[in-house]
Design a protein around this nucleic acid. Structure first.
Lengths: 242, 242
DNA sequence: GCAAAAGTGTTAGTCTTACACCCATGA
DNA sequence: TCATGGGTGTAAGACTAACACTTTTGC
């Protein structure tokens, strides 16, 4: 019940997270199917406690869904158009959803708070998808990793938030060397390359890619990885931040 | 009085603007000396009306200080640490300042609203400094253009907001070709180059700079500018967006 | 030995930087 | 004619992209 004490949160201000993961040569994000409507998909989000920094709030929101701490996380844009929520076609259905869910908790006052105008701070996160054990929250019917190319219609303006997050990711991916947050501790050069190829939707020449990566001086070469395949065993690498 | 009807604004959410101008080979920003304290300097800022988009709010805040419309404007970061206002050493003095200013308007409730926690959306703006006629607002003792290298201690975390704005400016300056917003309609190649040199705090070779600029195909060459100086008259250029 | 994929080397091309030089202008 | 600063050309260097080739591995 404590969770629905909305007094603890800053009103009109929310955080939505675009959580990127990488699996099977696919870039994915975590989206939630809501219990509050029929086929209502949304980004994982939440509110900011009155004495909680926004970065901490985003970390908490992520922790609540992924059970992971110390996730790579960055704010990328504020979405604050005056009509983004109040004129959303989902908003009326959401009011009904809350009422049907539990009319004793969701009084008119609470529902007004929840469906009023919101300014949303967009964060993107990068996680090793293998380390995540998704945690359904109260209104999550299910949480699902979806290929970034196959995102269904999301609530409100969440599709454009995803677009902006992807743009920001591509802008920072190479410059800030954040891609390693999507990979396990150790990986082969081909695995990094495939990640880059997935993110940028283009191919790279393996020799030039390797040269560029090694010239960055952020990779430590480890032992070889014998997979049983009938080819030369690739080296494993570990990312070492300077 | 209408202005102090704080009910019209979203609580706990503010906008602060770093307004860049360029004059005499110096990059400057507009800062405000507040009537509310002794030597209190701050960024021009304001609040967001309940049914006003954040970009519109920022435009309005800029218009109120500069009397300019259609200013180049971009959000660059949210400042939302939980203690940025409530533990600011300026906050106590501000409370006193409001009381002394007008205790009938600034009731305890109003002062609480004003000095409570705020999440601040940082915007930066680029203006032609010649077109600006600064407009003092209620609490502005004066508005002043100050060289970016000589910014005094500002309230709260405003100095770090300036730093972040400068970083964002430098990051976008060349990539988005926004520098022309700081110049008059027509300008010489040398003037653009000096602007770039000021922003990046380094020199460029004039021939290479010119070649790069012209290769961008965004400059229209106009007639020559005869200044009376005993040297070749430089061409004037106009920026034409594609 | 052979196929598959890892890894390395070299060259061609493009972009950036640096140097040298000529040109227009007014005293 | 000279000093001043505008404008252009070219070559060297750095970085990127493309091609060719060798090495390792298990069947």
């Amino acid at each position: 019940m404590n969770e629905f004490n909305l007094d603890q949160y800053l009103p009109h201000l929310s955080i939505d997270c675009v959580i990127f993961g990488y699996e099977g040569k696919e870039l994915k994000i975590l989206i939630s199917k809501s219990k509050l409507g029929d086929n209502f998909w949304a980004l994982p989000g939440g509110y900011i406690k009155k004495s909680e920094g926004i970065d901490k709030a985003a970390s908490r929101i992520l922790y609540e869904r992924t059970a992971l701490k110390n996730i790579y996380l960055e704010q990328f844009r504020v979405f604050g158009h005056e009509t983004r929520i109040v004129e959303s076609p989902y908003n009326e259905a959401l009011r009904l959803g809350y009422l049907q869910y539990d009319a004793t908790i969701f009084t008119e006052e609470v529902i007004s708070w929840l469906t009023d105008r919101f300014v949303c701070i967009g964060y993107y996160a990068l996680v090793d998808i293998q380390k995540v054990t998704t945690q359904n929250r109260e209104f999550d019917e299910l949480l699902e990793w979806r290929n970034i190319q196959q995102i269904p219609n999301l609530m409100h303006d969440h599709n454009s938030i995803v677009e902006e997050a992807l743009t920001a990711l591509r802008l920072n991916f190479d410059a800030k060397l954040i891609g390693f947050n999507l990979l396990p501790e150790v990986f082969t050069m081909r695995e990094i390359q495939e990640l880059y190829e997935t993110v940028y939707e283009r191919n790279f020449a393996n020799n030039n890619f390797q040269k560029k990566m090694l010239d960055l001086k952020v990779l430590e070469r480890l032992e070889k990885k014998f997979t049983g395949a009938q080819n030369k065993a690739p080296y494993l690498y570990r990312f070492v931040k300077k």
